[in-house]
Amino acid sequence: MHLQTHVFGPADAPSVLAIHGLTGHGRRWESLAAAHLADVRVVAPDLIGHGHSPHLPPWSYDHHVDALTAVVDEHIPAHARPFVVVGHSFGGAVAVRLAAALGADVVRGLVLLDPAQGLDPAWALQVATDSLTHWDYADADAARAAKRAEGWADVPDALLDKEIAEHLIDLDNGRVGWRVAAAAAATAWSEMARPFVLPPAGVPTTVVVAERVDPAFVSEAFLRACAAERAESVEVVRADCGHMVAYDDPDLTAGLIRAMIGHR
């Protein structure tokens, strides 16, 4: 499946594959790329069911990995490998599985921003059900208020305005909603309730835990497993911010990506 892919930065710069979170899109990485990583080539696809990529199923982890592998083949040539993968939330869960599929010869390192996997199934069901119940909004102001209540409390106004302008669309029922397939979003909550997967052995990984998120997306069980089984390759960074890490703390995010680019 061919994904709509946004590319920011110079063609001859080190490449980073950036994977957005649930209900997101690749252009969410544009502000970070322009203001903090201007000398890095950021390849940012819209995931299946999101943005301008195809919305048709299937929407499983495996199919996301297959589609992203095709993005890598198209946009990151052999001379630009190994490269760094950064993933936010659901995108972090996908990033771990993509790294396992591609291997350490292709993936230089992982930066996982509040990765969401191994979620409590009962909680995932509740959130998925609630999100489908409140999937659309009366107008842009209502959509904006919902974002502020759903983890965007500290995101700058300009970035939220940009999200509204680029990602909110008119629906057939006369209301508005995000450019996302509702069924794909529900499926993602199901996937995130599957057991967590550790980063591949030998792939340097930074896990960012957003400490203002309650309940947490990053489980203590996952962190303990990383400490026990990946102590030599996984670093945990606890950030005093909300779930939208790249928006809330772009300096930290860019610094971690740059450090991973320079990792040997």
Rank of each mutant, 00 (worst) to 15 (best):
A146S: 11
G92M: 13
E229G: 10
P10V: 09
L110N: 01
D114P: 08
V84I: 13
D62W: 07
W135S: 04
R41G: 04
A254V: 04
V208F: 02
T187I: 11
K162G: 12
A181N: 14
E232R: 14
A227G: 12
V96F: 08
H55C: 06
H167M: 12
L112E: 03
L168W: 06
H75C: 09
R41H: 01
A124Q: 15
L17P: 03
D154V: 00
S31P: 06
A11K: 13
P77A: 10
T69M: 11
R41P: 01
R179C: 07
V234W: 06
V127Q: 11
P121Y: 05
D141A: 15
A165H: 14
Q4F: 15
A239T: 00
G87A: 13
P14S: 07
G87E: 04
A216P: 08
S233Q: 11
P54S: 02
A210Q: 00
E211S: 14
H167C: 08
H63P: 04
R97G: 08
R108A: 09
H50F: 10
A184I: 07
V85P: 05
A138K: 02
R27W: 02
M244T: 03
L119C: 01
M260L: 11
P45A: 10
V94N: 00
M1E: 09
R175H: 11
A99D: 08
R238I: 06
T253R: 05
I19A: 04
V245G: 04
F90S: 01
P115G: 11
S131Q: 13
P14A: 03
V176H: 07
V94F: 07
H167R: 12
G242V: 03
A221F: 07
V218Y: 05
A246W: 05
K147M: 15
V236W: 01
G174P: 01
A186S: 15
S131W: 08
D249Y: 00
R179D: 10
V65D: 09
L119D: 05
A67N: 09
P115M: 12
V94M: 09
Q126G: 10
A101G: 09
A33V: 07
I19P: 03
V209L: 05
C226K: 00
A38V: 10
A13N: 04
H25M: 11
V203K: 03
V65R: 02
P58K: 09
L168M: 11
R230N: 06
D120S: 12
R264G: 13
P58D: 07
G255L: 05
V127T: 15
A34K: 15
H263T: 14
A231W: 09
V203M: 05
S131H: 10
L132C: 13
H88Q: 14
V245Y: 00
R179F: 05
V236P: 03
M1V: 12
D73E: 15
D240N: 14
D248H: 07
W59C: 11
D12N: 15
R230K: 09
R144C: 09
E166D: 12
L17F: 05
E220T: 10
A158H: 13
T129D: 14
V7M: 06
L56P: 03
G26V: 07
P199I: 01
H36G: 00
G26H: 04
W135C: 06
G91V: 01
S31F: 10
